[in-house]
Design a protein around this nucleic acid. Sequence first.
DNA 1: TTGAAAGCGCTAACAC
DNA 2: GTGTTAGCGCTTTCAA
Lengths: 344, 344
Amino acid sequence: MSVTIYDIAREAGVGVGTVSRVLNNHPSVSAKSKERVLDVADRLQYVPNAAAQRLARRKSRTVTIIMPHISNNYFVELLGGVQDKLYDEDYDMLLYGVNQPQQLQHYLRRAIRAGHSDGLLIASLDLPSDFPDMYVKRNFPIVLLDRHHPSFDCFHIDNVSSAYEATRYLISLGHNAIAMISGNNDSSPSIQRARGYSTAIAEHTHVSDGGIHHPGDDLRNDGFNRNAGHEVMSRLLRLSPAERPTAVFAASDIQAIGALHAMKESGLRCPEDISIIGFDDIDLARYYDLTTMRQPIRRLGKLGIERLFRRMEDASLPIEQQQFTPELVIRRTTAPPPSRFPVV
Amino acid sequence: MSVTIYDIAREAGVGVGTVSRVLNNHPSVSAKSKERVLDVADRLQYVPNAAAQRLARRKSRTVTIIMPHISNNYFVELLGGVQDKLYDEDYDMLLYGVNQPQQLQHYLRRAIRAGHSDGLLIASLDLPSDFPDMYVKRNFPIVLLDRHHPSFDCFHIDNVSSAYEATRYLISLGHNAIAMISGNNDSSPSIQRARGYSTAIAEHTHVSDGGIHHPGDDLRNDGFNRNAGHEVMSRLLRLSPAERPTAVFAASDIQAIGALHAMKESGLRCPEDISIIGFDDIDLARYYDLTTMRQPIRRLGKLGIERLFRRMEDASLPIEQQQFTPELVIRRTTAPPPSRFPVV
DNA sequence: TTGAAAGCGCTAACAC
DNA sequence: GTGTTAGCGCTTTCAA
């Protein structure tokens, strides 16, 4: 049905070896053969069969990326850092979006099949406990982003100290009734950020802890989604003004944005009534003038993919792990607290 | 190096045909063989070679998606509608993000190679003029999203009539000095929306056309970006109050938001001083209380991928083209014009 | 039901 | 330099 190198060989009066050599720019072919082959290939509109190439070369020129279901700007940015490199290297990108933990298992199995892809980038996903063993043994090139594991190359941030710093900033503004909007209780960044928050609160005894609040309804993306932020903030806003925190630390920008919407719906102003600080500095944060902790998201993506290429070349490389420290970006959703007992 | 069906066949004392049948759940195998093969496969930790399967089956179980460089919520939504279906069908998704027109050519060539993917979804991208011929002939399954072309299945919206309606709405509010913030002059939605605008203006002779203004600086994403909206609006605001339009139609929400920021910086209020209507109804629109034309983005993605699967099953299907009509969503950035000659 | 064997389309080693 | 040939690992037809 479709034209193969045998067709070209026959038409051009050469062997398939020569055709293959020409098509792959192998040096040892005469100019004459080269021209003839190229001519015929062009005339026949030859297009190589990708599956056959993969099988024969034992290389797929494809990289698999597994990340939470793309429903979120964080991943848009991460991918941005990855795509350019792939284009430069002429590699394809196979993308899996994970909704539920079970899917991760499924995708992992697919991803490491021979002939499927040559390397794997896993972002923002905790590995199943039985996973590392199996894959470390296979020695399949894997790089982790936004997560840490001793057996793999990792590029991630220090969640604990960043959350600590974010909370400290609210305290430094004079807030002494602070609460946290957290994510799902079993995602590691969520846990780590909560720990940083708690440490900061504990160190300042004059600050009352408004608690760490987990979303109940929408747990997509580990609770790092807009609905979750909206839901939790709505809960906080139902408290009496005296019980209500004057500042809130959201575990992610996208939740902070949900919280901002909840405030707006309740007729409250940010930062006049309640200050909000987020985490990540996704693109949207700028639009919302959101104070936040900036993660070098795009940079993580870029470093990760570059490392993956190096590892695909040389599987015996020593493991590389890099931790980054987010920086505080002050915008306009944080301010000193309102007086709690206004003159009547 | 890695274990093949030959290894399994040998160990299990059967032929490779039987192994293959067992692995593919072919009905005619004895329970005994089945058990033995499965046992050995499990013990040897067998994983099939994807490239070999593709070559032999002449199917890749992969769908390619080409869209503008993902930098934008629009595409997050679109992909959301696509991924679920792919998971259900157990297909892989190969994703290409296009930055510059030349990349599109490159990706198209890759995508239609045999053994690469079984179908192609192209979103929000104008096809190169020489493309259709080549691919129509090959009969490769292709579905277009957010664009129209007579030779392919298409799911898109009626840009002309929506822009017309948006403009009419401004006129109905009493505005008679209106301008448009447009995108890059060679993207088709940009052109179509400008046409709808012009038609509406032309039909109302008492309305003075403030012109169609294209961004000069930032042409990313066809000019559908925040900077572009900001830049153009700033230009309009430098006009004297008498020359200034009282209402503006922005070709996209994201530009409208840039325009809103420009107004704020100039100390002007929306809608009191100038009304603004956007286009798309992205997530942010709600937050900014932006009046806009709502596109069924997620739905387009879902319909597109479903159609693609049907076409992959049956390439001889007649072409299906569906055009949707965005709906007007009235929020709070539009109002009747201020009196143009206020009493001093 | 099952084994043998012929592809799928390409690469690469080998001999000339 | 170039043709021939043996894989790559799997599916599927054909006989038995």
